[in-house]
């Protein structure tokens, strides 16, 4: 009895597969499913892939009134200019240093905070803390930079007045290149820390409670449980978020840095995003801006692929 069923099953499968090959993806059969994909598909084609075609102007001397078809092709001229620009290595260094600081100092914090919040037993207290630390996320960079300005300025800034009151010299946080990175990362932590805990908290809630009970039976304390149960359980989430974070490597936030940038900290504060704006868009050099943007994108892509491969080697799923 079992055999014929198996045979017919197999033939059915091959038949299906053949059908797929014949009709190409079974469009008719799965019409509704394809229809459901359609809006999303169109979105990506129209708003993501179609505009990418515009990247060709990186190889042109693009003049708006001549259009893409009419502008002169100049090959790698803009790339050569970018790589020979004396500021190129400064830009690359600043971007990478800030990125590294972002990963090292900011990335672990939400995980730690989420673990700590998870240990809070008092429901009301936990919820109010969560709500309060979300709030800064909804403030714009303009507001945060202005608040920082009020706190840190030399003339009447709160912190400097405090320093002066206890007899210490004033520090020009806003106009010195030494403090820029600290201020920058500090602001990111203040703004995004609470918000970033959301995903970790969600991941922690689905951890099987039996595991905790088992660990307790084995005599594990709170720290042990966190280390041996919670952390391994949310490891895939951490890896995924890390890869995504690396993907947006060079997106350090134009608005944020542009607000902090001034003549006295430019050597550490100028990053690709601000450079594209001041050297490219403000001067109407669309081709050159595109070149810088394209370079930035390629570096980001390479970093994502590398980190994804690394994640797979470590036995994780990766993002694709």
């Amino acid at each position: 009895m079992a055999k014929p069923v198996n045979v017919s099953d197999a033939s059915l499968l091959t038949h299906d597969r053949q059908a797929v090959r014949k009709r190409g993806f079974g469009v008719r059969k799965h019409m509704l499913l394809y229809l459901m994909i359609l809006p999303g598909f169109l979105y990506f084609v129209v708003f993501k892939y179609f505009p990418m075609g515009g990247l060709v102007i990186a190889f042109q001397d693009y003049q708006p009134y001549r259009g893409i078809m009419g502008s002169e092709w100049v090959g790698f001229k803009h790339f050569i200019r970018l790589f020979t620009e004396p500021t190129f290595f400064m830009l690359l260094r600043n971007t990478l240093v800030l990125f590294a600081m972002n990963i090292v100092f900011f990335f672990p914090l939400p995980i730690i905070l989420a673990l700590m919040l998870n240990e809070v037993r008092h429901k009301f207290f936990k919820n109010s803390i969560q709500t309060i630390i979300y709030i800064p996320h909804f403030m714009s960079w303009v507001i945060i930079v202005s608040i920082t300005y009020v706190f840190l300025t030399v003339d009447g800034g709160v912190l400097n007045e405090l320093l002066a009151a206890v007899g210490l010299p004033k520090i020009s946080f806003l106009t010195s290149s030494e403090w820029l990175r600290t201020v920058y990362i500090g602001q990111i932590i203040w703004k995004e820390l609470g918000w970033s805990t959301i995903i970790y908290l969600a991941a922690i809630t689905v951890v099987d409670t039996q595991l905790y009970e088992a660990a307790e039976m084995d005599g594990a304390g709170r720290l042990r449980k966190t280390w041996h149960v919670t952390l391994p359980a949310i490891r895939p989430v951490i890896i995924t978020l890390l890869i995504l974070k690396i993907g947006s490597t060079l997106d350090l936030g134009f608005e944020h840095m542009y607000l902090l940038l001034n003549s006295l900290n430019r050597e550490v504060a100028e990053i690709f995003d601000t450079y594209i704006y001041t050297a490219g868009l403000k001067n109407g050099q669309l081709s050159y801006s595109t070149t810088v943007g394209l370079f930035k994108g390629v570096v980001g892509l390479v970093l994502v692929m590398l980190s994804n491969r690394l994640a797979k080697k470590m036995g994780e799923d990766g993002v694709y």
Partner: peptide, 23 residues
């Protein structure tokens, strides 16, 4: 000047500020 003028001007502006502030 049209292509690089404002980038170049930044060099001078930055240096001027730094001179005034004694850096």
């Amino acid at each position: 000047y049209n292509t690089q003028g404002s980038e170049l001007q930044k060099t001078i502006t930055d240096a001027t500020y730094k001179y005034i502030l004694g850096e």
